[in-house]
């Protein structure tokens, strides 16, 4: 990730950030207005509190966003690769843990996560998978009694 200092004329970080807050606030407020009873301050319905909070958030979002159009900002630094791979690892774990078991789920997750920072080779990954899976099974299944079998054979049931 290179951080070159250059004048962008706009602070995109706060434009995006403020914009997201503005949108999220408006969404919450309008959704509450649309779907929940608002009631009165004396007898608040389920929609009263979230609606006002939503509008308040939208105002704050605008206050963050608007000035950012008129000033320079620092460039943003995204770690795309770690973000994608670490998230994918968690999702794979979620998909695998109840279908093929704890050990393969851990293997999948570790194998994918490791690629986020490509320093560990295949041999290292294999050792890490074996150690993590064994330790996790011992600690969580045997030690803490978590209902997670190490292996599930998905085709036999």
């Amino acid at each position: 990730m290179t951080t070159t200092v250059r004048s962008t004329g706009r602070d995109y970080r706060d434009i995006i950030g403020g914009g997201v807050l503005l949108a999220f606030g408006l969404f919450c407020a309008l959704y509450a207005q649309e779907h929940y009873k608002l009631g009165s301050p004396t007898r608040m319905g389920p929609g009263w509190f979230p609606m006002y909070l939503g509008y308040l958030l939208a105002i704050l979002g605008a206050l963050i966003m608007v000035p950012a159009f008129f000033r320079d900002g620092e460039p943003m630094d995204m770690q795309w690769r770690p973000m994608a791979l670490i998230t994918l690892g968690v999702l794979l774990f979620a998909a695998a843990v109840k279908t093929i078991g704890l050990a393969p789920a851990i293997a999948l997750q570790v194998a994918v996560s490791v690629v986020a920072d490509d320093k560990l080779g295949i041999r290292g990954t294999a050792i890490l998978v074996a150690c993590t899976a064994t330790a996790a099974w011992l600690i969580f299944h045997v030690g803490l009694g978590l209902q997670l079998p190490a292996f599930i054979w998905p085709f036999e049931q």
Binding site: V97, V110, S113, A116, L120, T132, A136, L148
Partner: peptide, 30 residues
């Protein structure tokens, strides 16, 4: 760190799963 973070991520997965014994929470974590 490249050895440590995959282990921590596994702990996150197991931790989230064990809240309700449900994979829904794991997906929400992601």
């Amino acid at each position: 760190y490249y050895v440590m973070y995959p282990i921590i991520m596994v702990l996150v997965g197991i931790g989230a799963y064990s809240i309700n014994n449900s994979t829904f929470d794991v997906m929400v974590v992601a």
